[in-house]
Design a protein around this nucleic acid. Structure first.
Lengths: 226, 226
DNA sequence: GGGCTCTGCGACATGGTTGCGACATTCCGA
DNA sequence: TCGGAATGTCGCAACCATGTCGCAGAGCCC
């Protein structure tokens, strides 16, 4: 339900992303070049910009800086996989988040919502997730269980936010590694399992019979109902 | 704008709400009892359920729990005025929001949109496949048969996802071996047959007369309608 | 600088899962 | 009707995914 400006030169990606974001309830305007994007930006009154880095003519960094100069609208960057330099430069240029190609519509929608949420903390209700007696306040970064505050470490909190950000949905270890630990490779490490275990120890009454974070054998972990 | 299942026993309320929600652009199926609602749910492929608490026979809580067991579809409860206990119990049973009777069409439409917006990316609907009374939620990785959750092992689930991903189409043993088992050779092993058997044992009422997974002698297996 | 917590990592335990072989059954053509 | 081929069925043992624990280095706050 947000007005989004998509700047992406690849025709098929542009079309499919426009459709996908439309399905998620956003109002999308799409532009194939940076110049066109900058022209559309005030016209569409975009609340958020999704911006590809590799553009013909004016590149993503330049577009990013110009949009930044015009206001504080959140910018989500699309980058090629594993291009670390791009990520850093993008953040320096003023991007709020980045998504690695190839983009999963679900993922980018989640990031968009996360960025918008982050930048729009006016309504506490929106930024609060609750399941049973567990309350997660994304604005205050606090977790409450049965009315009692639960102290969380940064990694635990990131993991919980990520999982609770997609309630009922299974997230693979790979996905969690990328989003929470920002690793792109998947060793045979028990990192994710370990994190989940530590998180469970804090929020589950009986870690042996988890209510909030469920294991889906062979696939990953899932937060919440089902 | 959304596929909605309305479960409400009061005739006049049911009719007027159906019409009102229809005017707001929703595609509404209505059921007078919980049993009927659960039957309609997979058939209508509902993206959201509006559920009255006071129902003859199976009450709203039970319906709520059963729908919850089937997937992550949002549920909006209708409750009698000021009945706080109901609200709490409803939320515990898995409802996402509640509306107090008498319902204003505008109000319930707003709530519906809010709930859908809140959970849009991760909720079912898009990622849910249904055939007869079998519901497969690809996001939550859950399978429900006749409203009852069916526990699946990873291989069984992968096989079911693969088959149901091409409903009505025959997949050869070779294809299934490659996609599900990630083998590239085809011995004379009974691996696929074995997997199908285990899968049938879980989802078919009578494994001797399979409804969901049919054998196509000499070619392979097929999910769903002919 | 000292003490603290956090976190990554490896090792081990364990129980469900699965691959496999053997045999039964069904199907289809001759 | 008969025989061969294709498929269904069963049980078991190895294996694999996950849970669990402890440790040590790194980071952080005072």
């Amino acid at each position: 339900m947000s007005r989004i400006l998509l700047i992406e030169d690849d025709h098929s990606v542009r079309i499919s992303l426009t459709k996908a974001l439309g399905r998620y309830g956003h109002d999308v305007a799409a532009a194939p070049t940076g110049e066109e994007g900058l022209r559309l930006y005030p016209e569409h009154a975009a609340e958020l910009v999704v911006l590809d880095l590799m553009l013909p003519g004016m590149d993503g960094f330049e577009v990013c800086r110009r949009i930044r100069a015009a206001g504080t609208v959140p910018i989500v960057m699309l980058t090629a996989r594993g291009d670390d330099i791009d990520v850093v430069s993008g953040l320096e240029a003023g991007a709020d988040d980045y998504v690695v190609k190839p983009v999963e519509p679900r993922v980018i929608d989640a990031r968009i919502r996360a960025v918008l949420r982050r930048g729009a903390p006016e309504r506490a209700g929106q930024s609060t997730a609750a399941y049973r007696d567990l309350v997660i306040d994304r604005a205050a970064m606090t977790v409450t269980r049965a009315g009692k505050r639960v102290a969380m470490t940064p990694t635990e909190l990131r993991l919980l936010l990520e999982l609770s950000g997609s309630p009922g949905q299974v997230l693979s270890r790979q996905q969690l590694l990328e989003s929470v630990w920002e690793h792109s490779y998947l060793g045979d490490s028990r990192l994710v399992d370990n994190g989940v275990q530590r998180l469970r120890a804090k929020i589950e009454t009986d870690p042996a019979a988890p209510v909030f974070i469920q294991t889906v054998r062979g696939f990953g972990y899932r937060f919440g109902p089902v």
